[in-house]
């Protein structure tokens, strides 16, 4: 057991622990904070596997952007802590049933060799090479994504924009309202 293995098991334990804490917290802000710890753990795991770019993206996108969004929503909606049981039976029972199926299949796969295993090739690419490839060989995809972001922006504007009162006269002739 070398140093990498020690680091791996340590990280795995931290990720599992943090995720477990995240799903069992009653206070949503606490849950989100634990989830951030879990994401940082995954990022380190990626780094350990030799994918620094993926690690950086994990921190920037998941631990950064997505979690900030979660926090925003939690604070905007001001969801109070729910007083009922954390896992009502009608949620936990199906979950347990599905987990049992999952466990059975996983243990079957672990015990019996299905003969379908294949070794995936690992590809190491530093961020520069990755960016180079992306904009040379997949610029069309990047362009489509940029349009997708434009649509998302318009969608946010439409959904979040102020709606005028139903009786406001509208049209080319109507005077435009000026709000301070």
């Amino acid at each position: 057991m070398n140093l990498y293995a020690v680091a791996f098991y340590l990280l795995a334990a931290v990720i599992l622990g943090a995720t477990l804490m995240a799903v069992t917290r009653r206070h949503l802000v606490h849950a989100v904070l634990y989830l951030i710890v879990s994401f940082f753990g995954s990022a380190l795991l990626f780094y350990l596997f030799g994918a620094p770019l993926l690690a950086a993206l994990e921190v920037i996108i998941y631990a950064g952007a997505v979690m900030i969004l979660f926090l925003f929503i939690v604070m905007m909606l001001r969801v109070g802590a729910d007083q009922g049981p954390l896992f009502p039976p009608r949620q936990i029972l199906p979950a347990i049933a599905m987990a049992a199926v999952y466990l059975a299949v996983a243990s079957l796969l672990a015990v019996r060799d299905t003969g379908t295993g294949g070794v995936l090739q690992t590809a190491l690419a530093d961020p520069r090479a990755f960016g180079d490839y992306l904009f040379r060989n997949a610029w069309l995809a990047v362009e489509i994504v940029s349009l997708l972001l434009l649509v998302a922006l318009v969608g946010a504007l439409v959904l979040g924009g102020r709606t005028p009162a139903a009786d406001t006269p509208e049209g080319p002739g109507a005077p435009r309202e000026v709000r301070p």
């Binding site: 489509i144 349009l147 997708l148 649509v151 998302a152 318009v154 969608g155 439409v158 959904l159």
Partner: peptide
Amino acid sequence: LSSYALYV
């Protein structure tokens, strides 16, 4: 892209 445009 086509789906998101339609959602909005």
